[in-house]
């Protein structure tokens, strides 16, 4: 079971969190004309990275904040956790 440091609450067990997907994906702006390909990439296409991955987690049984986690997808090592608008 992972041990995750919520940037707001501190270190908590994995059972308090929900995984939230790739944190490098940016939603296209509202009302912006974009191609089908761009939209499909946003909705469906994700890299299945081996190694360091930046992802969202949601402290669902805690402060209910979303935040970013940099995790190794093979070893589960967590290098860093960040608030949503902090950059690595």
């Amino acid at each position: 079971m992972l041990y995750i440091k919520c940037p707001y609450c501190g270190i908590r067990a994995q059972t308090e969190f929900a995984y939230g997907g790739d944190a490098t994906v940016k939603r296209p702006e509202l009302n912006k004309e974009i191609t089908d390909k761009e939209w499909d990439e946003f909705v469906y296409l994700r890299k299945s990275l081996r190694g360091k991955h930046l992802e969202f987690w949601h402290h669902i049984s805690g402060c209910r904040q979303w935040f970013k986690v940099q995790r190794d997808t093979t070893t589960h090592e967590i290098f860093k956790t960040l608030k949503p608008h902090e950059e690595l």
């Binding site: 939230g20 939603r27 969202f56 904040q65 979303w66 949503p84």
Partner: peptide
Amino acid sequence: LSHLEYYLQIVWP
């Protein structure tokens, strides 16, 4: 609720 929080905290802060 999680969906709304996602959009408020991440997409449209």
